[in-house]
Write a protein that binds this DNA or RNA. Structure first.
Length: 339
DNA sequence: CCTGACAGCCCGGGAGAAACCA
DNA sequence: TGGTTTCTCCCGGGCTGTCAGG
């Protein structure tokens, strides 16, 4: 039943988008001065996961680029490129002014200097999951490069601003905001319908199954598409002739945890052990946690390092820490994307 | 008892200088 | 002399001890 699996991949950017006209227009209006070579303030996109922030940002920038020859752009995922160095490297790489001489032995300052020297056409940099950026002051440095325009994407605006210092706070507060809400059920159904048209054989679909999937996904397009993908896969491998509501409901939990699994996969072995302990315990004190951790690995890190790991897991929204100091308890989030 | 900020240490690896060899 | 190997230095990044504070 699957004719084009690509359209069910999370990173797929459709050639046309539905239901986000207002957001697309808002974003392109904010960036439009660039076409005339005028400087533009950063744009901040926020909203819960799976509502099309990344997709729309990439789509809009791409369309802008088609409208104007003189425009460079780069997409950086700050979850993966979380250090100052890595982010700068990716940004610099986007204008190709230096794939050559820099590697590990060049100081970060040099990368920034190179970027400051850039005097090509306007350069749009999409910083996705910007709240995962380790050193937020990088944003300030980037802000001060006139040719460079930032499109910042964050799940939680408040959390992002909390990590910024005052001058950056006021700067970004003044910039254009584009807020994304969760999809209503009908829109989500429409999005799924498009994907089906592009990559699946609709003959296999039971009537109303897309609406059921939309219902299960609760406004999250990523989850919805994940359920559709899992369900289609199930139909395909078992050679069923229909994708039914039952199949969708069966695979839904798996699809829901898939996003969290992706996050867990990015962890090191030690971090994963710690997460698993917390997850299985439900709730655990720091002392018990460290003891359990020590029993689970061959070459345990120190308490101090485990604290670093815990901070990281918390940052990734995989766990939460309840209570202060003595009363501290860690617990795993069943859903990787809390409000 | 637990935390987070800070600074120092070490490791892996790139780059350029120095030493070495034909 | 020219090419190759070794040395040395420097960088980012991960890990850890310390320390003040709750």
């Amino acid at each position: 039943m699957i004719s084009d699996a690509r359209v069910l991949q999370p990173e797929f950017v459709p050639g046309e988008v539905q239901h986000r006209d207002a957001e697309v227009n808002h974003l392109s209006a904010a960036l439009r001065p660039l076409i005339d070579g005028d400087p533009t303030d950063p744009v901040l996109i926020d909203g819960p996961p799976g509502v099309g922030k990344t997709c729309i940002a990439r789509f809009t920038v791409e369309r802008l680029r088609e409208a104007s020859v003189e425009l460079n752009h780069q997409y950086v995922n700050c979850w993966e490129e979380y250090s100052r160095f890595k982010t700068l490297y990716q940004i610099l790489d986007g204008v190709a002014s230096t794939i050559d001489i820099h590697r590990q032995s060049t100081p970060t300052d040099v990368l920034l200097d190179r970027l400051r020297d850039y005097d090509g056409p306007p350069y749009i940099v999409i910083l996705d999951e910007v709240d995962q950026l380790e050193d937020k002051s990088l944003l300030y440095d980037l802000y001060r490069i006139p040719e460079l325009t930032m499109v910042l994407i964050a799940n939680d605006e408040a959390q992002l601003f909390a990590g910024l210092d005052d001058r950056l706070n006021s700067r970004l507060n003044a910039c254009t905001r584009v807020h994304f809400d969760t999809y209503p059920k009908e829109e989500l159904t429409g999005i799924l319908h498009d994907r089906v048209c592009w990559g699946l054989n609709a003959d296999y679909l039971q009537d109303g199954v897309l609406a059921t999937i939309a219902e299960l996904a609760a406004g999250d397009a990523r989850t919805a598409i994940g359920i559709l993908r899992q369900a289609a896969h199930t139909v395909h491998t078992n050679a069923y002739d229909t994708l039914t509501d039952n199949i969708a409901e069966e695979v839904a939990p798996e699809a829901r945890t898939e996003i969290r699994r992706n996050a867990v996969e990015r962890l090191t072995h030690h971090q994963e052990v710690i997460f698993t302990i917390i997850d299985e315990a439900g709730e655990i004190t720091p002392g018990d946690l460290y003891e359990a951790y020590r029993d689970h690995v061959e070459d345990p890190k120190t308490k101090r390092t485990v604290r670093n790991y815990l901070a990281k897991l918390e940052q990734y929204n995989l766990i939460v820490a309840d209570g202060q100091t003595k009363g501290r308890r860690y617990r795993a989030l069943t859903d990787a994307t809390p409000a």
